[in-house]
């Protein structure tokens, strides 16, 4: 075995080790409690009727959360308070607010591993169940104009 062959064999072994490690890490992290703080599924049409549906409208420059239940329609701007161990479905879209056109936003709840685009004329849904109480942050991560950076707030999970 000459020197080149030896080096090539080391390449192959090295690559296999790295790939195996990456695969193992991937499997491991998806099972971590930190990653299962919320479970979610992305689906275009199916919403379980027993879920609590919250309509999320991104506008320039605020997130408006709307929920309708037996007591009426509740609206919150740039903040959201939800119950623990309850399944919620966010229906995310974009409205034009006081502007001429609606633009693309992107709702990102970092600690919940939730990220979903708010696209005008399209309802993206994401379903999740918070299992911890506490206060978390959410942000808009798709540039949407002048005050893009204030499209953020706190998501509170209460008992």
């Amino acid at each position: 075995m000459n020197k080149k062959m030896k080096i090539e064999a080391m390449w192959i072994i090295g690559v296999l080790v790295v790939l195996a490690a990456a695969a193992g890490l991937n499997v491991y992290t998806t099972g971590l409690p930190a990653f299962s703080i919320a479970t979610k599924e992305t689906s275009g049409t199916h919403i379980n009727p027993s879920n609590h549906v919250i309509e999320v409208q991104g506008e320039q420059w605020a997130w408006v959360f709307t929920k309708e239940n037996s007591t009426g329609i509740h609206t919150c701007t740039d903040s959201l308070t939800i119950h623990v161990n309850t399944t919620y479905t966010l229906v995310v879209s974009s409205t034009k607010g006081s502007h001429k056109l609606a633009v693309i936003h992107d709702l990102y709840i970092a600690q919940f591993d939730i990220q979903v685009y708010a696209v005008p004329g399209q309802n993206n849904t994401v379903t999740f169940t918070p299992i911890h109480t506490g206060t978390f942050i959410f942000e808009c991560v798709e540039y949407c104009g002048y005050d893009h950076y204030i499209m953020r707030g706190y998501l509170t999970v209460v008992k």
Partner: peptide, 24 residues
């Protein structure tokens, strides 16, 4: 929150502090 987070409350925080928010 740690106090440093609270000390620089951003514009959006008015909603948390100012109003009794509906719990969804």
């Amino acid at each position: 929150f740690d106090s440093s987070s609270l000390s620089i409350l951003i514009k959006t925080d008015q909603n948390i502090l100012a109003r009794d928010l509906p719990v969804f």
